[in-house]
Computed example of a mutant assay.
Amino acid sequence: MGKFSGRRALVTGAGAGLGRGVALKLAQMGAEVFALSKTEANLSSLKEECPSITTITIDLTNWEATREAVKKITPIHMLVNNAGINIILPFLDATPESFDLMFNLNVKAVMNVSQIVASDLITRQLKGSIVSISSQSGQRALKGRTVYCSTKGALDMMTKVMALELGPKGIRVNNVSPTVVMTKMGRAGYSDPSRANSMLARIPQGKFAEVEDVVNAVVYLLSDESDMVNGHMLPVDGGFLAA
Rank of each mutant, 00 (worst) to 15 (best):
T151P: 07
R140H: 13
M157N: 14
K169M: 10
Q139P: 01
V131G: 07
G167F: 09
G144T: 12
Q136G: 11
R145A: 10
M157P: 01
M158H: 13
T159E: 08
S132H: 15
G138Y: 06
R140P: 02
R145V: 09
S135N: 09
S137Q: 08
Y148P: 01
G144H: 10
L164S: 15
Y148C: 01
Q139M: 15
L164M: 14
M157L: 14
T159V: 13
Q136T: 13
M158W: 15
M162K: 05
Q139R: 14
V147W: 00
L164N: 14
P168Y: 04
S137M: 12
I133W: 07
P168C: 01
G153K: 03
K152E: 09
Y148L: 00
L164C: 15
M157H: 14
S132I: 07
V131S: 07
K152W: 08
K169D: 07
T159I: 09
V131T: 08
Q139C: 05
A141T: 12
S135C: 06
V161L: 14
A154N: 11
S135K: 06
I133N: 08
G144W: 06
S134I: 02
L166F: 12
S137Y: 06
L142Y: 13
G153F: 05
S135V: 08
G144K: 03
S132R: 02
L164P: 12
G167N: 06
D156F: 07
S135M: 06
D156Y: 08
K169T: 03
M162R: 07
Q139A: 15
K143M: 15
K169V: 00
M157E: 13
S132G: 13
Q139I: 01
S150E: 00
S132C: 12
G167A: 10
A163M: 10
E165K: 13
A141N: 04
E165R: 11
G138V: 02
A154C: 11
E165P: 10
D156M: 04
G144C: 04
R145G: 02
T146W: 00
S132K: 04
S132Y: 03
M158L: 14
M157K: 14
Q139F: 07
S137H: 05
Q136Y: 13
V147G: 03
L166H: 08
K160F: 02
V147S: 09
I133C: 00
Q136S: 12
V147K: 04
Q139E: 14
T159R: 06
L166A: 00
S134T: 02
A163C: 12
T151E: 09
T151I: 12
